[in-house]
């Protein structure tokens, strides 16, 4: 399992109620089910991934986070997880609002466009950065709304969204990934 998932899992309270938005093949959900809380379910867009989750015995709904979060009542989960997909939504602002409506807390991770490698790439090569974490070219990237950790913090501050945790010091320059716990 990738390190990001261990870091996310550490933030979750035992036996809490969790929704994993864009749960992929269920790797993180499976780890959480076995170690932290059995009360977890996921939403996933890919049919293949949904079937992989079912194979693991996980509860998953095939659906699209941009459309299908509205069916959940306010504060119906203790934690809502969104791992590295915020930047790929057409309307990330709406998704973020929905996460904070249905979850008492939202754990959101973003690929950091402010990482020094990204900055250096653009500065020296003059082309859109391609890194391990951002492997796609400009023409085929799913990422529509790239931001930096600083951008995201500024955004949350403007909207009165509380950030309870930032993953590292000097994070904007040195973290490839930002992981945040958000609260309304």
């Amino acid at each position: 399992m990738k390190k990001e998932f261990y870091n996310i899992a550490k933030l979750i309270t035992k036996n809490s109620k969790i929704l994993d938005v864009g749960c992929g093949n269920g790797e993180l959900m499976k780890y959480i089910t076995e170690n932290i809380s059995k009360d977890i379910r996921g939403i996933e867009l890919s049919k293949l991934n949904v079937q992989k989750c079912v194979e693991k015995g996980l509860t998953v709904i095939e659906g699209n986070a941009e459309k299908d979060l509205k069916q959940f009542p306010d504060s119906s989960f203790d934690f809502v997880i969104l791992s590295q997909t915020l930047q790929a939504f057409l309307d990330p602002e709406n998704v973020l609002n929905e996460l904070l409506r249905i979850g008492k807390k939202a754990i959101v991770s973003i690929p950091n466009f402010g990482h020094w490698k990204v900055r250096l790439h653009l500065l020296l090569k003059g082309t859109m950065p391609v890194t391990e974490n951002l492997p796609n070219e400009w023409y085929n990237t799913p990422n529509l709304h790239m931001c930096t950790i600083k951008d995201f913090e500024n955004y949350c501050e403007q909207r009165n969204i509380k950030i309870n945790l930032k993953n590292l010091k000097f994070q904007n320059l040195f973290s490839e990934l930002g992981i945040f716990i958000l609260e309304k």
Binding site: R41, K47, V50, Q51, V54, T59, V60, I61, E62, G63, Q71, F72, P73, S76
Partner: peptide
Amino acid sequence: IVIALNAIGKNVGFVEIT
């Protein structure tokens, strides 16, 4: 059906098969 179950926090999975 899925929406109705989620609205009251019931345990429901869903898949559309191609």
